[in-house]
Each structure stands twice: as C-alpha cells, then as structure tokens.
Design a protein around this nucleic acid. Structure first.
Lengths: 204, 204
DNA sequence: CGTTATACATACATGCATGTATTTTAGCTG
DNA sequence: CAGCTAAAATACATGCATGTATGTATAACG
C-alpha cells in the first residue's frame, strides 16, 4: 500500500479495467463492488478510495472510452463541405473501419447497449447517453437539412426522415455487429447498405 | 382469497400486467417481487403461488406477448412466392404497420431491448431471445439465398450480407423508434429506407 | 354440512451488498 | 528517525430481497 503516486494511478486504471471486464461478463446491475475488487486483485477499500460508488465508477469507465461519435461527426465541417452527402458517406465508412480496431470502445459500447439497465441510480448515466445520442441525432438532422436546402435530397425523403433512417441504419449495424460479432462482417454488410441509402438520398 | 378459478386466472393476468408495468418503469434487475405485488395490489404470496420466481414470471410475460417476427415471417411461404423480394418487402411494411398498434408488444419489446441485462438467472431468457433472433436471421438468410440462386440479387450483395443488412435495418428502425417514440415516425422513415434497400437488392 | 384443497397473506430466517468506521502499511518530509 | 499522511485492507452495522414455512379464509365437493 501507498507505494507511490503513479502506482495509485495504476491501481485506478486496474480497477477500471476490472470493472469493464466484469460489467461485460455480468452486466452492470448484478455486478458487486466485491467482484470488481476481486477481478482487480484488491478489496473494496481500494475502490472506495478511488471512487465514490458504483455509479461514479461506471461514469469513469464510460469517460475513459469516449465513443467515436463525438470525434468523427463535426456537423459544421460536414455542412461546409462541397459535396455534403459524399463527405458524410465517406466519414461514415471511416467510422465503420475505425470501430473495428477499437477493442475498448467495443467492450464499453456493448456494456452501454446490452449490459446496462439504466434505472435507479443509473438513470443519470442514461440521461448522459441520451443527450449524446440526441446531440448526434440533431447534428445529423442539421446536415440533412442543409442537403435538402441545397436541393440535393431526393423527393421521397425529408431532412427528418433521412436523418432518422441514417441513424437507424448506423445503430442497427453497430448493434447487430456487437451482438453477433464473429458471424458478421461489419464492412462487407455496411458498405453496400450505406451505398443503397446514399444512392436513394441522391436519386433524381 | 380463493374466490373462484377464473378469479385466480384474473389475478395471474393482473400480476403479469403489473410486472410489465414495473419492469418497463424500473428495469428487470432492480425490480423486486414486492414492487410487482404492490403494483398489482397484492402481496408476494400471490406471486409465489402463481410463479416459481422472478425468472419464471419474466418468461411468462415474454410468452404472453409473442413477438411479431414469429407470426409474420414464414420462410417457406416467402421462398415459394413468385417475386420473393417484393413479397418480403410488402411483408415487412405490414409488420411496421402492425407493431405500431400493438401496445403490449411495444412495452414488452422495450423491456427486452432496453430494460433487461440478461445475466445471471436471466441468461436463460437471453438464450431464448438469441435463439429466436438467430432463427429469424437464418430464415431471412434462407430467403436471400433463394433470391441469389434465382439470379435476382444484384451483384454487390451476397445472400449473407443482404440478410445482415436487412436485419440491421429492421433492428435499427425498431430500436430507434422505441427509444424516441414521440419524435419518430416509423412508417415515414421506414418506407423510404426499405425502398432504398430493396431497390439496391434488385438493381441490375 | 363437514372436509379438503385452493388461493392467497403473513411471518420468519438467511444471505448478501452497501457504506462507513477503523486499522494497517508504506512513502514522504523535516 | 519521528511523524504524518496517502493508499489501501479489514471490520462492522444496516437494510433489503429472497425463499420458505405457516396461517387463514373460502370455494368446491361429496
């Protein structure tokens, strides 16, 4: 105990790693702090030293793996592009490629999607997630509004429905992939799927 | 107590209703049998009389709202159709229309998707769900295999990726809709989205 | 009309997770 | 080297959900 300062920081990271692992295996609600401590090779004392409680630990884990949506979709840049649709299309493919390599992101996103109930104390975590999702949704809608304004959106679509379909497609791809990882080739499926969508957005 | 036989059946239904309501509000893991009993206006005794435990109650709730996938997608019929793709397309639109009217289905599906962690005791419930999903996935893949065999599937798609994209799209639509119900018009978004997908499947 | 099984309610024992208080260990400081 | 404090481990009190055992009222049945 009390080895040194960065030794404590190392402990903190170990606890977060352990939390990720146990949350992933067992889900958030049924995971006890004892289990996390055991996984990290310590006792609950260490956890309570570094974190206020389970919710704080959960949030810290969520923060450590800042999800890709925030860093990949800059609505201002997208709207400013020459060919907004093509830029969004390419951008999306880039995200698909990226997430495949991001092991931590995959684990954390799986926890957020499938291993967490977001109730009681966790409601705050949900509202964070919701805000982030809503923010994403809104940015995408802004982008499509611009596309529509420029007359580049096929009739049959409106900014709102186009954005909804885009979000649904992305979300569907990710969750289907995370649920059946070994049996699902994200790029092989996502590429033609996005191609179909964007072709429809553009159609004369 | 001991009113009559169908009075007991009525109690059973009331318990299931209460479970649905509380699971929906609070999530499955953190819901206690006392809360369900209170919601139903009874005590835990009634629950333990009708159900072995929480898992059994959960399964009964799941069974009562048999989800639409089972009754709408008959792979054999689909494969036998003249125009398989068009039939699947129409079938899918019909499901979209139907689910909007099925309040119980909506609640239960929301619980299954967002209010349940599927761990510990619930893992069995998960494997049931998984089987059902996998079965659905497989049936869809069978359908697309037939389409491919007939040479009616555009190059750029293979049976597997086409089925994956279809499932991802459906799942994405449903979950996006259930998450933001008021702000999302399922048909208005789903119709052009499916049109885009199926147009791509067919493209010469 | 008495008995019995049904449909619950109530009471009780157990276990376990949480949070906090206390204690121990070891690095740092003068 | 003494003293202090950061970094944990340990101990303890509490609450609460579960499961089960027991109690009880009433419908069904002979």
């Amino acid at each position: 105990m009390r080895r040194t300062k960065d030794c404590a920081e190392q402990t903190r990271e170990a606890i977060l790693d352990a939390a990720e692992a146990v949350f992933f295996r067992q889900g958030v609600a049924s995971t006890t702090l004892s289990q996390i401590a055991a996984e990290a090779g310590m006792t609950r004392g260490a956890i309570y030293w570094h974190f206020e409680n389970k919710l704080a630990l959960f949030k810290a884990m969520q923060d450590r793996a800042h999800l890709p949506k925030e860093r990949f979709f800059d609505a201002a840049k997208l709207v400013a592009a020459d060919d907004v649709l093509s830029t969004l299309h390419e951008n999306t493919l880039e995200v698909l490629r990226f997430v495949q390599t991001d092991e931590r992101g995959k684990r954390v996103y799986t926890i957020l999607l499938f291993r967490c109930e977001y109730i009681g104390e966790m409601q705050e975590a949900l509202s964070r997630m919701r805000e982030s999702e809503e923010d994403f949704s809104n940015r995408i809608e802004t982008v499509f509004a611009k596309v529509e304004e420029r007359g580049e959106l096929s009739r049959g679509w409106m900014a709102k429905t186009a954005a909804g379909a885009y979000c649904a497609a992305i979300h569907g791809l990710f969750s289907h992939w995370l649920r059946t990882e070994e049996a699902f080739d994200l790029m092989a499926t996502g590429r033609p799927m996005l191609a179909a969508l964007f072709a429809s957005y553009r159609a004369a």
